[in-house]
């Protein structure tokens, strides 16, 4: 972690893989990139084995492009689709056991605060609906009750995609899946309200249809977590395999869901609001 670990020692450039040299010379380290400049710099995440047209992969791509300080960030994931892409990026990645990501992140964040008292080290958890709201529910909630200062992002594909299509707590009511042939009997968990009640200071819900807005939400969630407390983003990232969405229609589906139950929603406490307003004023002046 840190810029000095990223740079190539003088004289070794020609022995390093081309991708790595590109990453240092044309990547995101040590500078702020605008997410709208995608395609004109070397991205942190590399080729990954996620399915064609996966919008979870898309969300992760935008996530890495919008990190405020990639060289000072640690990402945590757990079993599920997301870790396939998360582990292919030039940002340290820790693989928690299923469900304990938020407990690991709590310890990590505390340790980093003691080790680097004069620096901000960001810890971000990205896990699926199973990892955070079903199996990891207790640890997720308790990290919020303890007001641990890190960001939790739920990439919600509404199904256990890796293991053949079992229903999860986040699947919508009535949906028929390969291993839920009678249709789901219960409602989708309202994760956003749970996060608000449990003590998160910044909560957002979105469907990935607008890269600029995703980047803004992710930056805000990470910056708010540095100073105030836990933050939570609930992102809809469809599973085009288990929900049988033709890959060409994936974005259309995301836009469709945005009109229904994934309308953009952002909530923050008054002190966080004040902080962002002041920050935006400063940015305008600069």
């Amino acid at each position: 972690m840190g810029l000095e670990y990223v740079k190539i020692s003088p004289g070794f450039e020609r022995y390093m893989p081309r991708d790595y040299v590109d990453l240092v010379k044309m990547g995101q380290f040590g500078r702020q990139v605008d997410v709208m400049d995608l395609g004109q710099f070397k991205e942190l995440v590399e080729d990954h084995p996620m399915c064609a047209g996966c919008y979870m992969a898309y969300f992760i791509r935008i996530f890495y492009a919008s990190l405020p300080n990639p060289e000072d960030t640690i990402v945590l994931g757990t079993a599920g689709c997301a870790r396939l892409a998360l582990s292919q990026a030039a940002v340290p990645f820790i693989y928690g056991n299923y469900g304990d990501t938020n407990a690991v992140a709590s310890g990590l964040k505390r340790a980093l605060t003691i080790r680097f008292p004069d620096k901000h080290k960001d810890v971000v958890v990205i896990a699926g609906d199973g990892g955070l709201m079903d199996i990891g529910f207790g640890m997720t909630m308790h990290s919020w009750f303890r007001r641990e200062k890190f960001t939790t992002i739920m990439v919600d594909n509404e199904v256990y995609g890796n293991t053949g299509g079992q229903e999860s707590g986040m699947s919508p009511k009535g949906v028929q899946l390969k291993m839920a042939p009678k249709g789901k009997q219960f409602d989708k968990i309202n994760a956003v309200e749970l996060a608000k009640v449990a003590g998160c200071v910044y909560v957002a819900k979105l469907s990935p249809t607008n890269p600029k807005r995703i980047a803004k939400v992710i930056r805000r969630a990470i910056l708010a977590a540095r100073h105030f407390g836990p933050t939570f983003i609930h992102a809809y990232t469809s599973c085009n395999i288990e929900y049988s969405i033709p890959t060409r229609e994936v974005l259309a589906d995301a836009r469709n869901r945005e009109k229904k139950d994934f309308k953009f929603y952002e909530w923050m406490t008054d002190e966080v609001k004040e902080y962002f307003e002041e920050m935006e004023k400063k940015e305008v002046k600069a």
């Binding site: 997410v35 995608l38 395609g39 080729d47 047209g53 919008y55 898309y58 791509r61 974005l251």
Partner: peptide, 15 residues
């Protein structure tokens, strides 16, 4: 540049 912004693969469509 809209295609670049909506591709799920990193550095697949460039500008």
């Amino acid at each position: 540049k809209q295609c670049v912004l909506f591709c799920p693969e990193p550095n697949c469509i460039n500008f």
